[in-house]
């Protein structure tokens, strides 16, 4: 009985939880009280007009931007607590780095390391951060490149790859750290239209394999098909959320309605 209880508790424990996150860039109130919970296996899609704070929210989660105030829990552990741009929770930089590694990040502009081959891009995280040996790192990296369908380009430098290929390498690079959750910051926005499909396909595979994902995207088709939850943001607030079907078919908020009308 007790065992069963703890199983349920475990299942309910969120991977990421935020409490009342605020972020200012100068006078600009970019995030205005975000409360969010993401549970294991969820594919949460975040949509909204540009400047609504979607990317900033994602970047705050892994410390690329620091929140002005609020709390962030990862796996139930308080990892960030700030008030008035000052740390309430003091944590040493090593711990922060470790925590960041639990959140895999895929960027709009790929940000592959240009001086490293595709294979080396995937190897460098585990070798530098987890001190994995070269042979092991290489084996794992090859597996991941196969998984994203780009093993034949393993020894090419990023400058020789198309945008879609670069983004798939970037996904493999993030996966190499065995993250608990993958964050995607408009992963297809910088791609030529004909290359979007190959990246979305890889993301779909990941979702089906049970990866917890948070995806800032303009790809409504992807959100509808793969997303388990959809969040609509506007002016730094979550104005509406639900299953993608609910939000697409029956938006409640006027701003959500306007947004969908303008893009669909």
């Amino acid at each position: 009985m007790q065992h069963a209880m703890s199983k349920i508790e475990e299942k309910r424990m969120s991977m990421i939880k935020t409490e009342n996150i605020h972020k200012y860039f100068g006078e600009n109130h970019v995030l205005n009280g975000i409360d969010l919970e993401i549970f294991p296996g969820e594919v949460m899609c975040v949509v909204g007009p540009s400047g609504s704070g979607k990317s900033t929210l994602l970047r705050c989660l892994n410390h690329l931007e620091r929140i002005t105030s609020g709390k962030i829990f990862i796996d139930g552990v308080l990892v960030d607590h700030r008030e008035n741009d000052k740390d309430v929770l003091k944590s040493d930089p090593k711990k922060v780095a470790e925590m960041c590694a639990e959140l895999g990040m895929v960027f709009q502009r790929f940000n592959l390391f240009p001086h490293k081959t595709a294979l080396e891009n995937v190897m460098i995280g585990p070798m530098t951060v987890k001190k994995v040996g070269k042979a092991d790192a290489q084996k794992k990296a090859m597996e991941l490149l196969e998984k994203v369908g780009i093993a034949e380009k393993a020894n090419e430098y990023p400058s020789r790859l198309s945008g879609g290929q670069q983004q798939r390498v970037a996904i493999a690079r993030a996966l190499a750290m065995e993250p608990k959750i993958m964050l995607f910051d408009e992963p297809t926005s910088a791609l030529d239209p004909e290359l979007v499909g190959e990246v979305l396909e890889v993301m779909k595979q990941l979702a089906h394999a049970g990866m917890t994902m948070m995806v800032v995207t303009h790809e409504m088709g992807f959100a509808r098909e793969v997303g388990t939850r959809l969040i609509f943001m506007d002016e730094g607030k979550i104005v509406e959320q639900g299953t993608p079907r609910e939000v697409f078919e029956n938006p409640q908020n006027d701003r959500t309605k306007d947004f969908f009308r303008s893009i669909l």
Partner: peptide
């Protein structure tokens, strides 16, 4: 700037990112 961000997102410290990613470039 994206290079430092990518290195940090992988869990590298500032020093590791400088030595392995930024300075070699």
């Amino acid at each position: 700037k994206g290079q430092m961000e990518a290195a940090k997102a992988l869990g590298m410290t500032y020093k590791q990112a400088m030595l392995k990613i930024i300075i070699p470039q």
